[in-house]
């Protein structure tokens, strides 16, 4: 059973994950088109007019930060950034995962020590708990939350929980490790087809946003 789950099923999960994301990228570019350039020529503004509009030094940066998510809600911005970074980096830099890759393909990707990844795993679980509580406590988030949102949070939480239990061998190891692999594969398969697809759309949407954190100058528009 374990051989099947960690062998062919893992391969299927990775193929579905990569192909699914590929299809979503393809769909995105199908749904959007290149914007026509505006054929309007504006006179070049005079330098002194440009200077007059510029806020004084120092104030500019402060004002700019105030208008961002980081400026408005620094705690949330830091927590969500850390959560997303660790969510991706922890499994990639985990020694046990990389040893399996080395055994299978003979390449050894860089790994962190087991102690460090253990702490990072606990951090990810802590962040999941934070987002869970936020969905219940904050009126703002509660107004938007559905059962589906909680389910997706659980989907992300489970591989880390089972991984943590398996590493510390708290329960029947064989059962837990099987559950861990299955939970990980389920999450991978779900990413392209659920709200977790924001993993890729976060970047794809940058083609639609002119001016702000955009790719290709946000030169695409909806078809």
């Amino acid at each position: 059973m374990y051989a099947f789950v960690s062998g062919p099923l893992a391969l299927i999960a990775f193929i579905v994950f990569v192909l699914g994301l590929g299809i979503q990228v393809f769909r995105f570019f199908g749904m959007t088109r290149e914007k026509e350039p505006l054929n309007i020529s504006f006179p070049k503004p005079r330098q002194k007019d440009v200077d007059a509009l510029r806020p004084p030094e120092g104030v500019s940066k402060k004002v700019r930060l105030k208008g961002t998510v980081l400026g408005m809600e620094p705690f949330l911005a830091i927590v969500t950034t850390l959560f997303h970074l660790l969510l991706i980096l922890t499994p990639i830099l985990l020694l046990a995962h990389n040893l399996m890759i080395e055994r299978a393909w003979g390449i050894s990707p860089p790994s962190l020590t087991e102690g460090v990844t253990d702490v990072l795993t606990v951090a990810v679980m802590g962040f999941c708990l934070f987002f869970f509580l936020r969905r219940i406590v904050s009126a703002r988030v509660r107004a938007l939350s559905t059962a589906y949102d909680f389910l997706l949070l659980l989907l992300v939480f489970l591989p880390f929980l089972t991984g943590f239990i398996a590493y510390h061998q708290l329960f029947a190891y064989k059962t837990v490790i099987l559950a861990h692999v299955l939970a990980g594969e389920l999450m991978l398969i779900c990413i392209p087809f659920t709200k977790l697809v924001h993993m890729i759309f976060f970047f794809l949407y940058r083609f639609l946003l002119p001016g702000e954190y955009s790719f290709a100058s946000g030169s695409r528009v909806w078809r």
Binding site: R27, F28, G30, M31, V69, M72, E73, L76, T80, S138, R140, V141, A143, L144, S145, T146, D149, T194, K195, V197, H198, F201, Y205, W222, R223
Partner: peptide, 20 residues
């Protein structure tokens, strides 16, 4: 506009960070 609407609703993570 079906693809665009479905796509948008699928991505919105209900995070409420747009509020401010």
């Amino acid at each position: 506009h079906k693809p665009q609407i479905r796509f948008t609703l699928a991505v919105c993570a209900h995070c409420s960070m747009c509020a401010h």
